[in-house]
Amino acid sequence: MNFYGLFGYPLGHSMSPMIHKIIYEKMGIDAAYKLFEVEEEYLAQALDSLKILDIRGANVTIPYKKKVIPLLDQISPKAEKLQAVNTIKNKDGILEGYNTDYDGVVRTFERQGWTVQNQSVYILGTGGASQAAAHALQDQGGWVTLVSRSPDKKNIFPVIDYQTLEEVEGNILVNTTPIGMPPKIDQSPVSDQIVSQFDIIFDATYDKVDNKLLKTARSLGKECVNGLEMLVGQAIAAVEIWEDISIDDSVMDDILSHVQKEWM
């Protein structure tokens, strides 16, 4: 049996063990997945434990997606470009870093049938998830702009503030901020008026019920989806890396269906 896990702090809300359990069962993989809640001062030791205990890999979540990079032996070109790692593979004692959040975004848009080519994309937030979404959608031909309360001119993407966003009419609006996450699902990162200015709303947060942003989008007849497909998509991509296998896209429907049933 191979062992995998998730590094982050805190981790009480994580759905990852359930998702990975379903993936392993569906693919006939003999593996187990655990949560490793690690405080920052012990992060280096935690990575060493992968080698010592022969743990074959780990996912990385907030707040360590950037902080693990100097602790790894090598990172993939994609992770290098995003400057964020959410998947580590222990390959014979060599720790390799990857980013599968990017894959989760791509799979979500493909499954929704949403065209990105030549579409104006505005992404709320400038963190790790924002970078993954920005690069993924730009690589699909989208015109990407980030939105921040404190615009940083050093970012490789154009950045505007929320006041400027009020004057924008775009095609796709993506939320990568934590606003709208449980238990504050009655909060929205933008006004109803801003939502009305877009055709598609993708909220990278997820919960059993729609948060305020998605409720507003549905009431206005917008195409919209939460981040559950992204979460499952990035988990499948991580398993492909760890196990050196390819999982057919058709399997995702089955996995996602089981995740939704277990979650509800």
Score class of each variant (00 low, 15 high):
His20Phe: 06
Ala136Asn: 03
Met15Asp: 07
Arg111Gln: 14
Leu35Tyr: 06
Gly170Asp: 05
Leu72Asp: 05
Lys81Ile: 07
Gly8Leu: 00
Asp161Ala: 08
Tyr64Pro: 03
Tyr162Ala: 02
His258Pro: 13
Asp186Arg: 09
Leu213Pro: 13
Lys89His: 15
Gly28Pro: 14
Thr164Leu: 12
Ala132Cys: 05
Lys261Phe: 03
Ile156Ala: 12
Asp161Tyr: 12
Ser219Met: 09
Thr100Ser: 03
Trp242Arg: 00
Gly227His: 02
Ala44Gln: 12
Lys215Cys: 10
Met252Thr: 06
Val168Phe: 10
Lys67Glu: 12
Gly141Glu: 06
Ala132Leu: 06
Lys154Asn: 13
Gln140Gly: 08
Val190Trp: 04
Pro189Ser: 04
His135Pro: 11
Ser150Glu: 15
Asp254Pro: 02
Ala238Gln: 02
Tyr162Phe: 14
Val209Ser: 15
Ala79Arg: 00
Val168Gly: 10
Thr205Leu: 11
Pro182Gln: 15
Ala133Thr: 07
His13Asp: 14
Gln131Tyr: 06
His258Arg: 14
Ser188Gly: 04
Leu82Gly: 00
Ser150Asp: 12
Ala235Ser: 12
Val259Phe: 00
Gly170Gln: 08
Gly125His: 08
Ile255Gly: 02
Gln83Asp: 15
Lys51Met: 04
Lys184Pro: 09
Tyr206Arg: 04
Leu35Ala: 08
Met18Gln: 14
His258Asn: 15
Ile22Gly: 03
Gln131Phe: 07
Pro178Ser: 08
Asp203Asn: 08
Leu256Lys: 13
Val121Gly: 07
Glu167Phe: 10
Gly127His: 00
Lys208Asn: 14
Tyr162Ser: 14
Val159Lys: 07
Leu35Gly: 04
Ser188His: 11
Ala238Trp: 01
Glu169Leu: 09
Lys222Ser: 05
Pro10His: 01
Ile185Asn: 13
Thr176Asp: 09
Pro183Tyr: 09
Met264Val: 10
Ile201Val: 06
Leu214Cys: 11
Ala79Lys: 02
Gln163Ile: 08
Tyr162Arg: 08
Leu11Trp: 00
Thr205Tyr: 07
Ser49Glu: 07
Thr115Arg: 13
Ile156Val: 14
Tyr9Gly: 01
Ala84Ile: 01
Gln234Leu: 09
Gly28Thr: 12
Ile255Arg: 00
Ile194Trp: 11
Ala79Val: 10
Glu37Ser: 05
Tyr64Cys: 00
Ala217Gly: 03
Ile19Lys: 01
Thr61Leu: 00
His13Phe: 08
Gln260Pro: 06
Glu262Leu: 06
Ile200Met: 04
Ala32Tyr: 12
Gly28Gln: 10
Gln119Val: 04
Ser250Phe: 02
